[in-house]
């Protein structure tokens, strides 16, 4: 834990991590307790959105993660107004250069490729860099013969990169397909929220799709559906449990058991 705390302190520029406040029950949780409890509120059980570094710490064998393409940054391909400033702000706020962290690591001794999206960077939206990093990760995993685990959270395609963002959906899909054709396993872990173009591409292309409890998972935004159809949305609409009921996710796994389940599945797929 203490190494993670050091990393977080460094990337966020804080000397000390402040306590986390639960949005659901207002509980104030000291950061050490928060981490020890898998970023779940100990009072009411609400899941917080995990930072990539927290997920990494909870998932991989200590000291095995080797990050790739860490420094890749957007070039503002359509010169969208105020986008550069937005990127700079997101960098400062998140301590990341983009909305996904990629690399290789061991999970319970098994080598794999890993991508972890981070909603603290522009809602984990996908522009050229997120698309390129995930594509390279799949290509690298294909070359090395590694399975891929993806922790997904995203508001969708990033509109500030226009058509370039949209085309990343096709680009990543191509790399996922080549990885699959090489006989390799891809597990998608859907976390809150997974929406729009991400649901319409690699979130739904896993051999196995796992969701975290109550995670919002869907294609169309809820407000858009209400405005388009004038219908009231049913309770639990587009939540993980709804997706399980309708057959779109394989299983829902609680966060404290996630690494155990991933390790079990990885092992089951070893020749």
């Amino acid at each position: 834990m203490s190494t993670l705390k050091t990393i977080l302190n460094t990337i966020t520029g804080n000397v000390e991590q402040p306590p986390r406040i639960c949005k659901k029950c207002n509980a104030e949780i000291p950061y050490e307790d928060y981490l020890a409890n898998h970023c779940i509120c100990p009072e009411c059980g609400a899941y917080f959105r995990m930072r990539a570094v927290e997920r990494l710490d909870a998932t991989v064998d200590k000291g095995t993660f080797q990050e790739i393409d860490r420094k890749l940054k957007s070039k503002n391909p359509i010169d969208f107004p105020d986008y550069k400033e937005k990127l700079e702000k997101a960098e400062k706020a998140s301590g990341l250069t983009e909305g996904v962290v990629c690399g290789t690591a061991k999970i319970d001794g098994i080598d794999c490729g890993l991508f972890i999206m981070d909603s603290a960077f522009m809602m984990g939206s996908m522009g050229t860099v997120v698309g390129e990093k995930i594509t390279r990760l799949f290509e690298k995993a294909t070359a090395l013969g590694l399975p891929v685990i993806g922790f997904i959270t995203s508001g969708g395609a990033r509109m500030q990169e226009g058509i370039f963002s949209l085309m990343q959906m096709a680009k990543v899909s191509g790399a996922v397909k080549r990885h699959s054709e090489a006989g390799l396993l891809y597990i998608a872990v859907l976390t809150d929220p997974t929406t729009g173009g991400i649901t319409a591409s690699f979130a739904m292309q896993g051999d196995i799709i796992i969701a975290e409890p109550k995670a919002l998972i869907g294609f169309a935004g809820q407000r858009v559906i209400e405005q388009t159809t004038g219908e009231k949305l049913p309770a639990g609409f587009q939540r993980a449990e709804f997706q399980l009921e309708h057959g779109f996710v394989d299983l829902i796994e609680e966060r404290p058991r996630m690494t155990y389940t991933l390790a079990k599945l990885l092992k089951l797929h070893q020749a």
Binding site: S173, S201, A203, G218, A220, Q238, H246, G247, F248
Partner: peptide
């Protein structure tokens, strides 16, 4: 964009 389209996997259909 509709409730029924989501129930029948609009995201998955495009992804596939």
């Amino acid at each position: 964009c509709g409730i029924e389209a989501e129930k029948r996997g609009q995201g998955l259909a495009i992804a596939e």
